[in-house]
């Protein structure tokens, strides 16, 4: 740690334990470690992307205790003990892509893919609360996430397609 703070004393470390995608994970980090960097650097979960690092772009969006948050605007130490879901945890339990992920593929809701993890987490949480959005509602749901490639049309289509796929999954589910 001294290498990161050449002018000051070594920073004190905090033991932080999160349940990430259902698995308890721990690391000792300085208080200033952003949750986004904790996930990427300390836990090796590089699916969470860091774009602007000041809360504007939405690429780093993860779920903490089921709610979307910007992981670049939180310190890992604040969330000791929390349940975190990253894009790596959005796939189905059997390893297949989730409805949201398949919809983004089918509808070309991504091009370079940098922003996609934030969209997948945001849309997954949104559809849990709003299973049948209109097109206007789908557009509203993604206003906090920036994409520089697609022009958003195909992302809106992906949200609507994901809602449809999830409805079909529910209908097919036994019981």
């Amino acid at each position: 740690m001294t290498a990161m703070t050449p002018t000051g004393p070594a920073e004190s470390l905090h033991e932080v334990t999160l349940t990430v995608n259902g698995v308890p994970r721990s690391a000792s980090v300085p208080a200033r470690r952003l949750l986004s960097d904790f996930l990427r650097h300390d836990l090796g979960l590089t699916g969470t992307h860091v774009g602007c690092e000041h809360g504007v772009c939405g690429a780093c969006t993860v779920l903490v205790d089921g709610e979307t948050i910007r992981s670049c605007l939180q310190f890992a130490v604040m969330h000791d003990g929390a349940e975190v879901t990253t894009v790596e945890g959005c796939a189905r339990g059997d390893g297949e892509l989730s409805a949201v992920q398949r919809a983004f593929g089918e509808c070309h809701g991504l091009q370079c893919g940098f922003c996609t993890p934030g969209f997948v987490t945001t849309v997954t949480a949104y559809l849990d609360q709003h299973p049948d959005p209109s097109e206007a509602e789908a557009r509203e749901a993604i206003t906090g996430n920036l994409c520089r490639c697609t022009g958003y049309q195909n992302i809106v289509a992906s949200v609507l397609r994901a809602a449809q796929l999830r409805r079909e999954e529910r209908e097919e589910a036994p019981g």
Partner: peptide, 26 residues
């Protein structure tokens, strides 16, 4: 004071502020 951090943490990330102590009230 650190509460939600949605305004404070951008200021810290951009080093527009560099307090020696953060008091987390969450």
């Amino acid at each position: 004071v650190l509460a939600g951090g949605q305004s404070l943490v951008p200021l810290l990330n951009m080093r527009l502020a560099a307090p020696a102590h953060l008091v987390d009230v969450n």
